[in-house]
Amino acid sequence: MSSGAIVVESHPADTLLRAERLPHILCPGCGIGSVVHTYVDAIAASGIPQDKHVCVSGIGCSGRAAGYVNVDSYHTTHGRSIPFALGIATYRPELHVTVISGDGDLTAIGGNHFIHAARRSVALLVLCINNFNYGMTGGQAGPTTPLSAMSRTTPHGCWERPFNLPFLAQAVGASYVARWTVLHVRQLRAALIHAMNKEGFRFIEILSPCPTGFGRPNDIGDGISEMQNYLRRCVVDNGIDLRQTDIDLTQQDSPIYVGDFVDVDRPSFRPQVVQHAH
């Protein structure tokens, strides 16, 4: 009855994307496309109308996300995606603002904005696509590059201690903290739908393969090898103490902890001056 694959011209999710821009610019084996795909799938399943979603992104490979989604979207200056999003979320509280950005953009260039938006509990959903390096500029070491990992600027191995992003987000007051990888698309989709319907500052770290910037200098080969790595090493532990969730790539068998770590209720930032203006 059914034969092989049927060749078609469009995808069911194309209505949520600017399909005329596809295929996107990202490398083969990169996980950012999967995150964007899961995000638009979660938009469709969230129960929130498409025109109530806003996507803000910064600079870098993952900053391209805003250009591909068919919701109101802003591609902002480097590291300033959260300030732009803060303005939207504070003045138009009926909108659901999602920031999609990379580890360098969010936690190095925009690190200060990140911690203070979380401290104020601004109503933002922040997706940090962590590929362990600055991919777009050619693979330099960033704030999440693991100890001893090779990169363009650390030819003898990185000697700086990296950020543990879920621990950081919890410490500065996020109401929801999760970490998944591009391999865990189902769990990520569920986490996105749950987080879209929550108040406060919600943070999801998504570990993504970067075969060009991170895989090649570290002998990981291609994107699929990095995904196999996640399959082998990831341990789901929702209740783990976040001090233990550092990612150590020096030991081949040390676990990478993933899960929905923090889920608490905190009211969103709503300054009185804005309430008077409405």
Partner: peptide, 21 residues
């Protein structure tokens, strides 16, 4: 359930994720 696979070949970059997983 039974499914039917649909593909858009010209978008593919051969990353192997679908085949492997």
């Amino acid at each position: 359930p039974r499914g039917q696979v649909y593909t858009i070949p010209n978008r593919c970059k051969g990353c192997n994720f679908c085949i492997q997983f």
